[in-house]
């Protein structure tokens, strides 16, 4: 299945709206299954089992562990667990976008929509930078793992702070360097050309795109109505 970039963005926004309105875990699991299904239909490598497992861990923590631990522990953790868990369908949508969208497709589609060039380049660089950032984060984690940077520090909060600082400093520096080199390379390929670029990857939205948006729109409307009437609370 090949969805249009606009469809994927609209789905993400609608799912984010649903996630903020919804308080029913069954509906939330339904959203996870639906987006997971979309991921699977978009390709084997698009589906993210890690996210599904993490979601299951959060759900089990809330419904199986919190009832049996002391009240203060569940009080302390429930805000974090519930809020993060309810955001998972949106993260699944973001994964769907970045694993199925070619940068040329973003540029072509938004250029056709007459979106200003500066905004298009910013979005395109953002999508390009996600996997590059993941590579950099892994490299820094590897470098830290062979050097116990927090050795000798007993205070656990200080240990976390030292680890965080050591992680962020090289990440920040490598991000600047990567962005700098990417920008220079893009300039030598004429990215600043004000003339309309060739949109090889532009495709019109298909009836399937419109159908999918309609279904999720109805679902969102249903969610809003239920919230308004207090049906699913």
């Amino acid at each position: 299945m090949k969805l249009d970039i606009r469809t994927k963005i609209i789905i993400t926004l609608l799912i984010a709206t649903c996630a903020s309105l919804n308080t029913n875990v069954t509906v939330e699991i339904g959203m996870m299954i639906f987006i997971g299904g979309l991921q699977l239909m978009s390709g084997k490598k698009v589906f993210s089992p890690v996210l599904v497992i993490l979601y299951a861990v959060f759900a089990i923590t809330q419904y199986a562990i919190f009832p049996v631990v002391p009240g203060w522990v569940s009080m302390l953790l429930s805000m974090f667990v519930v809020n993060i868990r309810s955001f998972f369908p949106v993260v699944m949508c973001i994964v769907l976008i970045y694993r199925t969208t070619r940068i040329s497709e973003v540029i072509a589609t938004f250029t056709n929509m007459k979106v200003p060039r500066g905004i298009i380049i910013t979005i395109a660089i953002g999508i390009r930078y996600i996997p590059a950032l993941a590579v950099e984060m892994r490299a820094i984690w590897e470098a830290m793992s062979v050097r116990n940077v927090a050795e000798g520090i007993k205070n656990p909060f200080k240990r976390v702070a030292v680890n965080m600082e050591c992680y962020i400093v090289p990440l920040f520096i490598s991000s600047i360097k990567t962005a700098d080199e990417l920008s220079a390379a893009a300039m030598t390929r004429g990215i600043e050309n004000p003339a309309p670029p060739t949109c090889r990857s532009y495709r019109k939205m298909s009836p399937g795109d419109f159908g999918l948006i309609a279904v999720i729109l109805l679902f969102t409307a249903g969610n809003a109505y239920a919230r308004y009437k207090g049906v699913l609370l």
């Binding site: 940068i103 040329s104 540029i107 996997p131 004429g190 990215i191 060739t198």
Partner: peptide
């Protein structure tokens, strides 16, 4: 700038 090889090769021409 692109993630796919073909898009990268075509990037300068598209611009």
């Amino acid at each position: 700038f692109n993630i796919d090889a073909e898009d990268e090769m075509a990037f300068a021409l598209e611009n």
